[in-house]
Simulated scan of single mutants.
Amino acid sequence: MFLKDLNFLGGIYRGNTELRFDKPLEEQLIELTQDICQIEYKEKNSIIDVGWFPIDMTITNNSHFKVYVIQNSNWENPITVYSCYDIGNLKNSIQEAINNIQNLT
């Protein structure tokens, strides 16, 4: 399954990645960038931002995904930030972020 094929519950997916949940990260190095994708929720004035850190397309003990929940373009104070170290946890973190946005007022 591709990242872009998740059910974003009305969110608009923007990304150029072909990141897959069913393939080892070591086989997807070209997809690992700081700007993997954003999912926009216009009615909530919110964004989910997904990125890979560090941004040099390598996998080390310090490498991880970050999933930010941003509301009202306030990038300095995200609602939530998830850090995860493998592709399976990334899927879970994105789903939690989607749920988080659905509960925003």
Rank of each mutant, 00 (worst) to 15 (best):
N45G: 11
Y68F: 15
E43P: 05
T17Y: 02
I47W: 09
A97E: 08
L19R: 05
L104F: 10
I12A: 03
T58F: 13
N7H: 12
Y85D: 11
T80G: 01
D56C: 04
L6S: 09
E40T: 14
P54A: 09
K23E: 07
L3M: 11
S46D: 04
D56K: 07
F65K: 07
Y13T: 03
E43F: 11
T105Y: 09
Q95P: 03
E27T: 08
I70M: 10
L6V: 06
I30M: 01
N61S: 14
L19Y: 05
Q34D: 15
G88T: 08
F21L: 01
Y13M: 05
I87A: 04
G15T: 08
N16S: 10
G88M: 12
E27Y: 07
I59E: 07
D22L: 07
R14S: 13
P54T: 09
I87D: 12
K23N: 01
I94L: 04
V67G: 01
N99F: 05
Q95T: 07
K23M: 13
D49W: 10
E43L: 06
M57C: 10
N89S: 15
S93Y: 13
D22C: 03
L6T: 00
D86C: 04
I98M: 03
S83A: 08
D5I: 04
N99L: 13
Y82S: 04
E76D: 14
K4S: 14
F21T: 00
M57T: 12
W75H: 13
I36F: 06
T105N: 15
P24S: 00
W52S: 04
V50I: 15
N16T: 11
V50C: 02
T58Q: 14
W75S: 05
D56N: 15
N74W: 13
P78A: 07
D86L: 00
N62R: 12
G10R: 03
D35R: 06
K44V: 02
N77R: 15
I30G: 02
D5M: 02
E40W: 10
Q71F: 06
P78T: 02
F65E: 03
I12V: 03
L25M: 12
E76H: 08
I79A: 01
L3W: 06
Y41A: 03
D56P: 04
H64T: 03
I59M: 08
L90A: 07
T33V: 09
N74V: 12
N89F: 14
G88N: 12
S73K: 01
P54F: 10
F53C: 02
N7R: 12
K4Q: 11
G11P: 01
F21P: 05
W52Y: 15
I94R: 00
T33D: 07
D49S: 14
I79Y: 13
T60P: 01
K66R: 14
L32E: 04
T105E: 15
K91Q: 15
G15S: 10
T60Y: 12
I55D: 15
I87C: 05
Y13P: 04
Y68D: 02
K23A: 02
Q102W: 00
E43M: 06
G15C: 10
N16C: 06
D56M: 06
I47T: 07
P24I: 02
M1T: 14
N92A: 12
C84M: 02
I39E: 02
K66H: 13
D86R: 06
E26M: 01
G15H: 04
